[in-house]
Write a protein that binds this DNA or RNA. Structure first.
Lengths: 239, 239
DNA sequence: CCTTTTATAGTCGCAGTGACTATTAAGGGG
DNA sequence: CCCCTTAATAGTCACTGCGACTATAAAAGG
């Protein structure tokens, strides 16, 4: 009803919390910071902080992302607003409303404890439990959201560098979903989806490893996948 | 970084805004209220209001929903958190962070202007333009979200009464998506999806109209649709 | 040279689906 | 009462997307 002029209103502290996700060594990792103060001193938590007076939540999230990762340029990175957590009592000291974001990084830098001396570290998703506040829930929501959006959007390319192989793209799906995918079928599906990826014309090659060199692709103009790349549980195959 | 103890923080006003959607006469309608005060006096806006000190955003949204619709019991209604709008300047008077929700109603009551004398009215979605604040955008986001979730969740039943015919369910899809669907195919698809709907055993009948009476169904236990009910394949190269 | 490894190409069969036709069960008008 | 209309329900058919699988190509290593 927006009767600002008639009703008194309670002021709230507004923060952003970030679930910064990346892939390291074939496993999903999340950036955590160690809390130096009460409450939850010594516990790990998602990076985050207060909104400044002239910032939107998105702006604040991107600022925190830059501070926490130490990356010079975070403008190209995918930021996804998850939802807002506003339960009374989620912070024992005061009433805090927090807007949660997921951020997807292709190449994880070694983090420095940003402005606030607290240590920052990449932690495998499965080991990231017992976080401060309601951050366990936020992190779980982030993974759910990202996993779901892989199905019907081009979000997977946000985990990849500018140029990538189809094998790397497939690893994104396999790692986030925790399932194995058939390589020829994945390839057929991705290439059949218009605008998902486009080949890098200057031919290919990559991966100093063994085997036949793979062709390079970059993200295409599409944002949504038609038809979607559906998750179908499949037993692990002998790799 | 949650350095509450080190940094000063700005207090914000936190509100909820509701896009209350329903189907009347085969068209999507939204509940709007007329503003009585500046800014935007005389303009239509989405219902909403401030969070009370001990309320979560969801609780506040449900309270506002009850006040604005005059419904005695809103506990069964579907509330969907959309996103949070926090751009500075979205309210010309003060810094307001607003958590937006979509609410889905099966049977639209005639609204009374809730607590705040302002008039409330059902407006066809297509006519709801030029709203106050950034409510045009919130309303568009609500429709996008609902339309998308119809594809892969059971959300459509939230627009239907406890018992409904497949024809009514199909009208939900057709109205929200703005496309016509083939009736036999829709029927086949819905019945083939386990847990989507279940027949009301006491046989059927409804709709005082002409034609063969339709069987009645109620919502099933499923929440997601496997496989999804995809919208008419729209090919695209956006941008 | 052969083996291993990884990328890429192609085949086969089934399930889901779009387009369409047919049948059933009501009401209304002559 | 008969017939027309209306709407729900049943069934057909061809195409396609996809899962499962096999085969070939191009590199590195021994």
């Amino acid at each position: 009803m927006h009767g600002y002029d008639k009703h008194a209103f309670e002021p709230f502290a507004v923060t952003v919390d970030l679930a910064v996700l990346t892939l390291r060594a074939g496993a999903l990792h999340v950036l955590l910071v160690e809390r130096g103060q009460e409450p939850y001193a010594g516990r790990w938590a998602l990076p985050g902080g207060f909104l400044l007076p002239e910032e939107s939540a998105e702006t604040a999230a991107r600022r925190e992302l830059a501070e926490e990762t130490g990356l010079a340029d975070v403008t190209g990175l995918h930021l996804e607003q998850l939802r807002t957590y506003s339960e009374p009592g989620r912070d024992p000291r005061m009433r805090v409303v927090s807007v949660a974001f997921a951020a997807l990084l292709p190449d994880p830098p070694e983090p420095h404890g940003g402005g606030d001396a607290a240590e920052a570290r990449w932690v495998p998703y499965d080991k990231a439990q017992g976080l401060a506040f309601d951050h366990d829930r936020i992190l779980a929501d982030a993974r759910d959201r990202v996993g779901a959006k892989l199905e019907y959007t081009c979000l997977a390319t946000a985990f990849c560098p500018a140029e990538f192989t189809l094998g790397e793209l497939q690893q994104v799906y396999e790692t986030v979903w925790g399932t194995a995918l058939d390589r020829p079928n994945f390839r057929r599906k991705v290439l059949a989806t218009p605008g998902f990826v486009e080949p890098v014309p200057g031919a290919a090659r990559l991966t100093g490893g063994r085997g036949k060199p793979a062709a390079l692709y970059r993200a295409g103009p599409a944002t949504t996948l038609h038809p979607p790349l559906l998750r179908t549980p499949r037993e692990g195959r002998p790799a």
